[in-house]
């Protein structure tokens, strides 16, 4: 059991090698920050929305995007579009005492679509990549098995720690921990909640370390895997193209700046 937002499926996006999705997500997220034009970020966002629709993960992705981007967009428009004095050039729209500035709107659009690309690309990766397959694909690309273990173990441990934290919170409240006390007392309560949590997980960690060592955790020999993760030549080309695009855009920015 783990808490990842992965949604099983058989779409083209699901079948891609998880490392390809990771590289492409990172590449487009960096690219939109190198290209200072909101239309570029908008175009990538639309392409990513198509990917989300094809993968059939629109429900969860749109909900998470909405949660993250709606309050962000609103605050951004207030700070960049109305308040930021650096953007006060030509008025775009005036309502009573409030002026929305042209440069502010441009800045808002650019930042909004850039962050949207970052959020969308990684959500698409996370909702369509099974964590175990991502782990295997990463190890095949030379990521140390220990690091891959930590990644999977973290996804698994979070719900466990969460459940334990809830149990401890109930127990401490039964013993008189006051959620309505003054802020000083409540701050001190943090230790009363977190210390038992840490002690409990440390004891489990100790046992786990012994168990892992007994199973050859630190062996340097090659590993074999339960799953096969395909990595066709086309995907390798796609990854290289993404990396080259980032390098190209970076070089172009440096060249223009010089």
């Amino acid at each position: 059991m783990n808490t990842s937002i992965y949604k099983p499926g058989e779409s083209v996006v699901h079948r891609l090698n998880p490392v390809t999705k990771l590289v492409v997500a990172a590449a487009v997220s960096i690219l939109v920050f190198l290209v200072p034009n909101y239309r570029f970020a908008l175009a990538i966002s639309l392409a990513l929305f198509v990917g989300v629709a094809v993968a059939g993960v629109s429900g969860i992705v749109l909900r998470l995007v909405g949660l993250a981007m709606v309050p962000f967009g609103a605050l951004l428009l207030v700070i960049q579009g109305i308040l930021n004095p650096a953007n006060h050039d030509a008025p775009f729209f005036v309502v009573g005492p409030v002026t929305l500035w042209e440069a502010g709107v441009a800045e808002t659009l650019l930042i909004f679509f850039r962050v949207l690309v970052l959020v969308l690309s990684f959500l698409l990766m996370a909702t369509t990549s099974q964590p175990q397959k991502l782990r295997i694909a990463l190890m095949e690309k030379g990521v140390p098995p220990q690091l891959a273990y930590v990644f999977i173990a973290s996804l698994q441990i979070i719900p466990q720690i969460q459940a334990r934290a809830e149990a401890i919170a109930d127990a401490q409240q039964a013993r008189g921990l006051d959620r309505e006390a003054d802020i000083r007392t409540r701050s001190k309560s943090l230790v009363a909640l977190l210390a038992p949590l840490l002690i409990g997980t440390l004891i489990v960690a100790n046992t786990r370390a012994l168990a892992l060592n007994a199973r050859g955790f630190n062996r340097r020999t090659p590993r074999v895997f339960l799953y096969e993760v395909a990595d066709p030549a086309g995907e390798r080309a796609l990854r290289w193209a993404s990396v080259l695009a980032v390098i190209g855009a970076g070089a172009w920015r440096v060249f223009r700046w010089l």
């Binding site: 930590v150 173990a153 973290s154 934290a165 919170a169 943090l190 786990r208």
Partner: peptide, 22 residues
């Protein structure tokens, strides 16, 4: 290596505890 996931778990659960204590 075993402590690292615990650290990550504590980071993740910090927000929950802070919410609980408002």
């Amino acid at each position: 290596w075993v402590l690292i996931p615990i650290g990550i778990g504590l980071n993740a659960v910090g927000g929950f505890i802070v919410n609980l204590l408002k």
